[in-house]
């Protein structure tokens, strides 16, 4: 069991994606970078960041951090929402598109985000397999 968004969790997530997902079949050779801004993370309601970057379907970076300097990476898409929303998305209870419709996620570059929803959902489906303590 690893803590959601911890360094160990990020390591496991990266390993899992690299070993289990096919960059063409599963990740559709996508080129994108996505910064999730996760608000109200317990126990002290701080903000955490979860950044991923893909080049041609290759996972280049997967970083979790509480340091807001990560914003300087200028991700192509940012998704901002509450911790509970991200838990629901990461554990496969709700798609990120539905969270958007339900007004639980604020997104920049929505059109691009929607074109990569399928591979991103596959990505989430993969990391959902990590034994995680939320």
């Amino acid at each position: 069991m690893v803590k959601y968004l911890s360094k160990e969790w990020a390591e496991l997530a990266k390993k899992k994606v690299l070993t289990e997902l096919d960059k063409a079949r599963d990740l559709k050779n996508m080129n994108t970078s996505l910064l999730n801004i996760i608000q109200n993370v317990p126990p002290d309601n701080k903000t955490m960041y979860f950044y991923i970057k893909f080049i041609e379907g290759n996972l280049e970076e997967l970083i979790t951090s509480s340091d807001e300097s990560i914003k300087q990476k200028n991700a192509e898409i940012t998704a901002t929402g509450d911790y509970t929303t991200f838990v629901q998305i990461s554990s496969g209870q709700m798609s990120s598109a539905m969270a958007l419709l339900k007004n639980r996620l604020k997104m920049t570059n929505k059109m691009k985000a929607l074109t990569i929803t399928k591979p991103i959902d596959t990505f989430n489906g993969c990391i959902k397999g990590i034994q995680t303590e939320y």
Binding site: L100, L101, K102, N103, R104, K110, M111, L114
Partner: peptide, 9 residues
């Protein structure tokens, strides 16, 4: 199209 939101903020 992407502005659809049915839950009040």
């Amino acid at each position: 199209l992407l502005s659809l939101s049915l839950i009040p903020s």
